[in-house]
Amino acid sequence: MKNRVDIWTLLIVTAVTALIWFWAAAETRGDRSISVRLQFVVADPDDWLVTPPQRTVRIEVQGSRLALDQADRVLRQPVPIEFVPVVGAKTIDILNALRDHDELEATGVRIRSAEPSVVEIDSDRIVRVPARVRATLPGVQTVGEVEVRPAEVTVAMPSRLRERWLGAINVEAFVDRGRLDQLDPGRHHVIDVAVRPADGLPSNGGIQIEPGTVQLAFTMRSRIRETRLDQVRVQLAGPPEDYREFRVDVLDPILRDVTIRGEGDLIRRIESEEVTVVAILHLSNREKEQRIDAKPISYFLALIREPDGASRGVQVEGQIGDSLRPPPIRLDIQRIDRENDG
């Protein structure tokens, strides 16, 4: 009986000792470094752009092990730092902001330091302006106009960007070629397209468009394609009677590396060499009188042979190399001496 009492006494003493040890360990004070992600918020976030919206800082806290563990759990989530915005820069004192955090204060830890101790943020008021939507369907010819639904959207943008961007705000509904290739010519199509800023307006400058998607309704007539030609011959054009007075020699008779754009079937016939492309250089009588020594080509022409053997020309777009402007063609223009020729 005595042995049984001694065993129970030993168990009770051991349990009490363990509880005291765990309590003492939990209450042992220490320091801990914790990484904190701050989230800067304002009362009306739809009307303000805050940069940066978040910032990571490292804080040193002191407290019991239990309090430090609780603080660690609280700070695993972003900590909202609410402030009153003004247009321009503002400095946030991190220590004061965190000391006002109710959940962190409830843990009982003491914040000793923060690195950095202050953070500078920038705020700008959001303004809203109406904008017409421009439909962009690269490589496609349509029957009539493209209908945009709705035709006008609202662009929300920082006030300082609006002050720098004078004039109308333009946006576009751009359809990539891959998507257009899946549509059949000759049919009416209605597709949903995302709207994006246009004409150089930055897409990542805090701009939002509402609604962000519009519908485009159109009938596709044909697709525009392009092909690259190693060489294209230059052909002169002008009043026929001028050739009795002037001799014109084209010193650059061949253009190299020419990209031609046109209706899909026409491009296919150019690639199969059924149709020839020439570069037309039009010279006026006045230019011949002045004996100009160079001039860019006027346009590119696809010469289509008809069943009766005649040819008709269809104007096509062309680009020489990577240049957006055609280079000048060198010329040698001489007046014909009629007396000597006679």
Rank of each mutant, 00 (worst) to 15 (best):
I260L: 09
V143A: 11
A294V: 01
D252F: 03
S35C: 00
P327G: 10
A310G: 12
A67F: 02
D192E: 15
L283S: 10
N285S: 15
A310D: 13
D44V: 10
P185N: 08
S272Q: 12
R164S: 14
S222T: 15
D257M: 04
T213W: 09
P328A: 08
V148D: 05
S311W: 00
D230W: 01
E306N: 15
P150Y: 04
E245P: 00
R128K: 12
P78G: 04
F300P: 05
E271F: 03
A198D: 15
S35H: 09
L266D: 02
F22C: 02
R73C: 00
A106V: 00
V275K: 02
Q54L: 05
L68C: 11
P53N: 07
V175M: 05
Q182G: 03
P78Q: 09
S298W: 03
S117M: 03
H188D: 11
S272M: 07
G200E: 06
E274V: 10
T136A: 14
D265C: 00
S284A: 07
I207C: 06
P150E: 10
S123H: 03
D176G: 02
R132E: 14
V153W: 03
A198G: 05
V127D: 01
R261A: 14
V214W: 03
D69E: 12
R228V: 14
A89S: 15
A97T: 09
S222L: 07
P78R: 00
I254S: 04
A168T: 11
G206N: 06
R164D: 10
W23F: 13
E82P: 01
H282V: 13
R162Q: 11
V5M: 14
L104K: 03
V250Q: 01
P52D: 08
A97N: 06
I267K: 03
E226R: 15
Q70I: 00
P78N: 03
S123V: 06
P116A: 06
L324A: 10
D31Q: 12
L183H: 01
W8K: 05
V127R: 04
P85E: 09
N340H: 12
R268Y: 05
F300A: 09
S123F: 06
L216N: 06
E105V: 12
V42T: 13
R286H: 12
L68T: 10
R268A: 15
G205M: 03
R112E: 13
E152L: 08
I7G: 02
Q231A: 13
G63D: 09
R330L: 02
V87Q: 12
D122H: 13
L104D: 06
A71F: 04
W165Q: 11
A24H: 10
N3I: 14
A25G: 07
N340L: 14
R112W: 01
S117P: 02
L137C: 08
R29K: 12
R223P: 01
R37C: 00
D308C: 01
G30M: 06
E241G: 07
A173T: 03
P296Q: 08
Y299S: 13
P45Y: 08
V148I: 11
R177L: 03
H101I: 01
M157A: 09
Q141A: 10
R305N: 03
D337N: 15
D199F: 13
E152W: 04
E289L: 13
S298I: 09
P116L: 08
F218P: 04
G309A: 10
D337P: 07
V277H: 02
R269K: 12
W8L: 15
G313R: 06
F40H: 05
D184P: 04
G321K: 10
A106M: 07
S117W: 00
